[in-house]
Design a protein around this nucleic acid. Structure first.
Lengths: 137, 137
DNA sequence: CCATTTTCCTCCAGTGACTGGAGAAAAGAG
DNA sequence: CTCTTTTCTCCAGTCACTGGAGGAAAATGG
């Protein structure tokens, strides 16, 4: 049996975060030692690793909850899991598209300033006047 | 003089957000009518448009505060403004790089599932086993 | 066995940038 | 004057943590 510190070191998930996941119901309330300290087995380590991986891929807590519920039912169809992953891919692509537009605009704005003083600063001017932008955002 | 609702419609910034910006000190505390309602002039509209534009480009409130302070000093050098914009560009590029990696991995994971049941679902398996990933994230 | 250090417990507040609801007061229209 | 719309303040919630305070349990060293 591991302490919460052991589990934290093994998974790279911070201790308060583990407790937070417990509070959110992503991991079951842990067994306790005589002195009321949490004790974990290998199953919890795997579950936490799953959660960490999903978080790194940007899944929300809610999506992870669904994925964990699904993974407990091996005989169910995997449509829903595929749907959740596809949805996350779409969300990431949306963000990517937005960020690419921002990058373009910022690159233009940041590389465009040839003034010395704020008076002539293109950064300030571009922010003050939306018409100086090439694309909308 | 505009009411807060007029200002909101003209700039596209929601009323509670305008009040929030006032609380944060991005816009000065507005003049008030006899009945204690906020009243705005064209200067505030321009300032709010500046803030909105900067937020759309992802600048933090703190960065915007600095940019606004700078824009009030036309004779100062514009190095700092350029630095803030360059820093934001860097932040956006960092996020872009991370998201691109996520996109790759999610695309691979989401497009890889040929099972019918959760038992064989690649999405679930990939999340459970980090070794199935091509890159780190 | 005891002292010290490390780890753990719970509770609570803060992050960033808003967002929205409750309840009351002011403004505008007819 | 009434009715509706808008505004006011205050406060709580969002998301996913993060960290501090104050105290108890566990591990380590002698």
């Amino acid at each position: 049996m591991m302490t919460i510190g052991d589990l934290s070191r093994k998974t790279g998930v911070k201790i308060p975060t583990i407790r937070y996941y417990e509070e959110m119901g992503l991991v079951a309330a842990a067994e306790r030692s005589e002195g009321n300290q949490r004790r974990y087995g290998g199953g919890e380590r795997d579950r936490l690793a799953f959660i960490k991986h999903a978080r790194e891929l940007g899944f929300t807590i809610e999506a992870i909850r669904e994925l964990l519920d699904l993974s407990a039912c091996p005989e169910r169809p995997c449509e829903q899991a595929d749907r959740i992953a596809a949805e996350q891919l779409r969300a990431v692509r949306d963000k990517l598209a937005k960020l690419k537009r921002l990058e373009q605009e910022l690159k233009r704005i940041a590389g465009h300033c040839h003034g010395d003083q704020i008076r002539d600063c293109y950064v300030i001017q571009a922010l003050a006047n939306h018409d100086l932008c090439e694309h909308d955002h």
